[in-house]
Amino acid sequence: MPEALSIIVIETDPERAGLIEDSLREAGSFEITVIPETTGLARRISEINPDIVLVDMASPSRDMLEELTLASGPLERPVAMFVDRSDDGATKAAIDAGVSAYVVDGLRADRIKPIMDAAIARFNMVQRMRTELETTRRALEERKVIDRAKGLLMKARGIDEDAAYALLRRTAMDQGRRVADVAHALVTAAGLLS
């Protein structure tokens, strides 16, 4: 039985990191280290000297890992981005799920596969949650701004709520902008004038 692979997960959100860690543990017995910080990332990675590094593709810190792939990089062992050469399906699935993996050279594909499968499944879920959260947050924010804009129009022009909304909508259509953007401009302007 070969030694347990050492995996680093770079993730700033502790909740997401926990989810990813759990699903990796289900996939096998690995030594998992979560690095939540971006400062000193290269140094921490070289201290741990992992077999595999998993990173969220949406994280700007991913570019820091690119230098691991250079011969002059901080790791003793050469590292490459994980590319499934037999069939780039797994690599594409990983990219679509938003996870990117850097693996040490010579690591056999059959040892990487369960890890990638677990990571892909988990990242897919995390990404879906993130998109949902972001969409909901934005919708709520926009609705708040539109409500404030409606309130301003009702007060300033003595019209009712439906008329205020119709006015916002018409203005947005005339200017080729979104209702939320027109509302935002109105609220900002009102803030400046008051």
Binding site: M57, A58, S59, P60, S61, R62, D63, L65, E66, M81, I95, S100
Partner: peptide, 10 residues
């Protein structure tokens, strides 16, 4: 894109 490496991969 969030990073150059992700832009390149995409």
């Amino acid at each position: 894109a969030p990073s150059w490496s992700t832009l390149r991969d995409q």
